[in-house]
Design a protein around this nucleic acid. Sequence first.
DNA 1: TTGAAAGCGCTAACAA
DNA 2: TTGTTAGCGCTTTCAA
Lengths: 352, 352
Amino acid sequence: MAVTLKEIARRTGKSITTVSRALAGYDDVGAETKTLVRRVADELGYTPNLLAQRLQKRRSDTIGLILPTFGPRFSDPFFSEFLAGVGNMAAEHGYDLLVSTQPPGERELQVYRQKVQSRQVDGFVIVRTRRQDARIRYLREIGFPFVAFGRIEGDMDFPFVDVDGIQGMRMIGEHLIGLGHRRIACLAPPADLSFAEHRLIGLRQALATYGLELADSLVRPGDLTQKSGYQITLQLLDSVQPPTAIAACNDLMALGAMSAIQERRLIVGRDVAVTGFDDIPMAEHSHPPLTTVHQPIYQIGKTVCDMLIRLLKGLDVTPHQVILAPKLMVRQSCGANMHRFTTEKGGGVTIA
Amino acid sequence: MAVTLKEIARRTGKSITTVSRALAGYDDVGAETKTLVRRVADELGYTPNLLAQRLQKRRSDTIGLILPTFGPRFSDPFFSEFLAGVGNMAAEHGYDLLVSTQPPGERELQVYRQKVQSRQVDGFVIVRTRRQDARIRYLREIGFPFVAFGRIEGDMDFPFVDVDGIQGMRMIGEHLIGLGHRRIACLAPPADLSFAEHRLIGLRQALATYGLELADSLVRPGDLTQKSGYQITLQLLDSVQPPTAIAACNDLMALGAMSAIQERRLIVGRDVAVTGFDDIPMAEHSHPPLTTVHQPIYQIGKTVCDMLIRLLKGLDVTPHQVILAPKLMVRQSCGANMHRFTTEKGGGVTIA
DNA sequence: TTGAAAGCGCTAACAA
DNA sequence: TTGTTAGCGCTTTCAA
């Protein structure tokens, strides 16, 4: 059925070895032989059996990506774009991308271990790093190649790409303060995620610059979904002293916050400012468009994958730790650029 | 470095064959031998080399999923959920999931061909079927296993799962008409997609029941993104006789439509009704919440994958063509359930 | 320039 | 119950 080297050897009257070398382009094969072999291979539509090739080469030419995701309603627009970046770069270099999903926990590490030991993948892309990250600890321990999107706490002697979350949230904080906000709430990520800390620090720094403090009661951890942003914001709005601005640590929660505000018949940007983080496509087309911090997520996916491939090929990986400067995207949800809205209600920015 | 059968054989003094069979649980192995072998394997932390196993078995135990997606800003919440369904089911049965992205076109088919010929995958999950689908034609031609999410035009002698788009859009149409709408626009999908036709037919059927017609000028094909929904809706609103309802053929475009409407300072559900299709998580938390048609996308992913695995295992796959009944999710974007809104403005449904 | 032989790690037919 | 042999399809010494 399938065309093998053996078959080509039979037809050309050459040995399997010669055929293999002719096809691989070695120059210790006679010119005529080479042409002949190649012609026959083409005619027969030969494609090497990758399984055999990989067994022999003792590499899988496959990159693993295990999405740390919960439940069935997994739908993070952030990951799909990252995935596209990783996937395209992998394909470009002839690598396969093995994707699976596994929520953080005991079993997660088993999955990593299994993929490593069964030699299914040559390296991993790690996403959404945790402050204490068992995956990274394990891979480092056994010396298995990986590149992370995100940092961890403590010893960081491994390759990663990250966006500077401190600076990102500092910009958000300064922007909000500049607009007159003093009572700012924060929709925080789960505390075990690395970027949770960074983003909170950034926000606190911005406030501190102005002699302000982020009240504990206004830091509300969510689970990064729209729903949780929605629910927390309702609570916030119903509290005795509601915030005038809500800085969400990701766009999905920010979008949820906007829904909650609108549900209470308040105007986003006028009555309450909202900001996000990520700049997913949806952010630009929400209503009002969301002020947020841009992460070039597709590009990050490509870069992370590229670094991993270089690592796998034994090439130089410099720099092997990349921290990207974030970019503030000022749109309407924070009350800046409200010209489109002000005509309607004559309102400006509410200053607490 | 890595533990192999050979190593276990050496340590136990048995042959490789015996070790292999002991581990595989064959009962033509002595009880003691079995215990011994297993103990040693455990101690050494043996994990079979899947590459070798697969070469020998001449199967890759891998399912291919090639996302037909364009450009870097790929972020369809619909696919990521589907992906999770497929991935989880695959993992459950010990299959790997090989994911890559490739926009429709010439090269797309090359990618399929390459994966088939290099024996990288045992079968494919095909998504977003086209009316004339080269992928399906090819796979059917060579007899390669696959299961599709979606149907095609013409001969449909292959396994698939689909949601009844005709019925879905008929329900939408009837719902809108029931609310008094007569001038209904449709944000249509690219015409080459199978479901584009179904959904348009459904909408037309609903209108026909009431002696109405869907004006050609009100059928506007988009590219399924939020942005295109936004842009088309602006055009629609600026036309001499704007529609009173906009039935988008997917949620993303519907969300874009809502933005456009709000940008024109109109109230969604009161001034213009909007409906979607898919029921992505975002639909429930948009503002106002989006009336749409629910597709159990995670479940569909699982089912498609399960069918494929049964196919690969030579098990019975009945039924091998599944058409699911869609479910109308009435929320606020269409003007029904407007109690939350009516108090505000005193408005009801605008009847053209 | 070419081919024979060995081996990647595993499974399976067959014989003992 | 066990081991020998062969082979999956490929690459790579090494000798001719």
